[in-house]
Design a binder for these strands. Sequence first.
DNA 1: CGCGTAGTTGACCATCATCAACATACGTGG
DNA 2: CCACGTATGTTGATGATGGTCAACTACGCG
Lengths: 188, 188
Amino acid sequence: MLFATGSALYSTGDPAAHIFVIRDGLVKLVQYLADGTQRIVRLLHQGTIAGLDALVDRPYEHTAVTLQPTFLCRIPIGAVHRLDAACPDLHWQLIERLKGSLHEADEWLTELSTGSARARLARLLVSLAGTADECEIFSRENLGAMLGVTTETASRTMAEFKREGLVTEMGLYRCRCAVEALREIATE
Amino acid sequence: MLFATGSALYSTGDPAAHIFVIRDGLVKLVQYLADGTQRIVRLLHQGTIAGLDALVDRPYEHTAVTLQPTFLCRIPIGAVHRLDAACPDLHWQLIERLKGSLHEADEWLTELSTGSARARLARLLVSLAGTADECEIFSRENLGAMLGVTTETASRTMAEFKREGLVTEMGLYRCRCAVEALREIATE
DNA sequence: CGCGTAGTTGACCATCATCAACATACGTGG
DNA sequence: CCACGTATGTTGATGATGGTCAACTACGCG
């Protein structure tokens, strides 16, 4: 199935009936706070699974929204259980996935929720760039929700980086990053 | 096995040879940042498992340190795999545990890493108190590492709560909390 | 053309980090 | 028993950072 940017795979509290294997694209997992502001707790990219809540038969804890056009397979949880009975190895794959998510969650906390806004944004850009030096970014609002800062701060910090020549925006939501220099800032 | 307060079950990078079922006590999972400061990413209490990294055959990602005298069972990972072959239900228990950890991780991020220091500390105290109104707390340094603030801020904020009558310290590392009032502050 | 959304920027203020001084408790060795 | 050292907590002064509120710009679309 193909989802356009900005569509929700599921929402907090929905009965968890499917898991979603992401073939291509990008999905954010959002959690809403008591005061209504939102916090992005994880990104799911190619090869990862959204909706793992369904494994333990409880409602979805997050809202999953695409950040890019996303192509994925939606698998009813019943089918997962049938597959599981047939293929004894599936558990371990699921365990592997869950462990991967947990690792992501811990990194998210230490990398993107600790230190100054400058350092956090630098870390985010470095990790989005991966081995390349060009990467997809997102609206200032999304950047803010990932880093736990306001959209204004996200905007200002991006502007700062651009002024310093560390980041060059290459059209909407795509930018070139001076990865090494950013890595420096990331450790501050 | 019984571990005294402050002993490490394992450290970041150690080959992951055991999982630890916590029978009684409390364990913190610590991650160290590039600049050497530490961040506590999760607490493990009675009935939960430390060292799940071992399931996927990679070194431990955290350092696990007891915060209280802790009684636990240390199970070699080989035994887990043998048990798993014998008892086909074990996977699902492990999946359940991992999912639990993931839930904890997400809550930690949204509750304890978002908002003002006052709100975060209030949320921590409320969640430590659970249904009771008395709870174990920790050194100011540990409180700070949980909330992502300095020990000074942790100390000041605790002092504030005490002055306002929201918290009464009952001997070392134990306190009585005005849970309802704290819940108010938690939403700020 | 006018409207709505997203981004930018400025001014101001609250919060928190930092640095430093001091207090308190505890254990060790003289 | 007391003096001392260390670890932990408290408190104050100060400055940097980021939140808030508001004005303004840029862009796309009906």
